[in-house]
Design a binder for these strands. Structure first.
Length: 182
DNA sequence: CTATCGATTGTCT
DNA sequence: GACAATCGATAGA
């Protein structure tokens, strides 16, 4: 079982929910996606809300591509593009491959602190502007379906000031690698 | 444990 | 000039 571009050519809410449990890696470093958030067109908290700009152009490109942006001037965050103007933010990963590389890049040893947050993932997987607008189906990325190991939960999104009530954050129930509890 | 605050820079008003 | 899809350190309960 695997995925294709049509998997992402859907409502970002459905994609965000379905992505939890997938395995993802960048140049051999990664693990299981355990937390995601959906951002939609006409969503006041989405970078695409005010229309296409130089920064968010990837969000308006083809589905199944990456959208990487710099958060607070210092954290690179990774999204998977869905239908035009929508994307799924990858918020937490359960480390599985390349633990040593992650520990070196993050300067932390505990597995729970390596990828539990969008900025931490960016640092652990060495994501930069160079990873923006690339197809998820080809190196350095690798994304593959993985049988769900437990139930999916949902809740409100994190770190935003608008549309804060939307329950568009999804996660693996009970996972110790979440960025926050639900 | 929770709460607060500084860091740092691209982007938009 | 203001602000941001965050993190880590620190102070206090």
């Amino acid at each position: 079982m695997t995925w294709d571009a049509s998997f992402f050519a859907r409502n970002a809410i459905d994609v965000a929910s379905d992505l939890v449990g997938y395995e993802f890696e960048v140049s051999g470093v990664g693990g299981v996606i355990v937390e995601t958030e959906a951002y939609l067109p006409n969503d006041a908290a989405s970078h695409s809300f005010a229309g296409a700009t130089k920064r968010n152009q990837s969000m308006f490109g083809p589905p199944a591509y990456s959208y990487v942006y710099l958060s607070y001037g210092l954290h690179w965050c990774l999204n998977f593009v869905c239908l035009p103007g929508s994307a799924v933010l990858i918020r937490a990963i359960e480390p599985k491959w390349g633990l040593e590389a992650m520990q070196t890049r993050r300067r932390v040893m505990e597995a729970k602190a390596l990828c539990s947050g969008p900025g931490r993932i960016g640092q652990a997987l060495a994501i930069t502007r160079a990873h923006d607008g690339l197809p998820l189906s080809r190196p350095p990325f690798r994304l593959r379906f993985c049988e769900k190991s437990s139930a999916i939960t949902s809740g409100t999104r994190v770190g935003i000031t608008r549309a804060i009530e939307q329950p568009w954050r999804f996660g693996l129930k009970g996972s110790p690698f979440l960025s926050r509890k639900f």
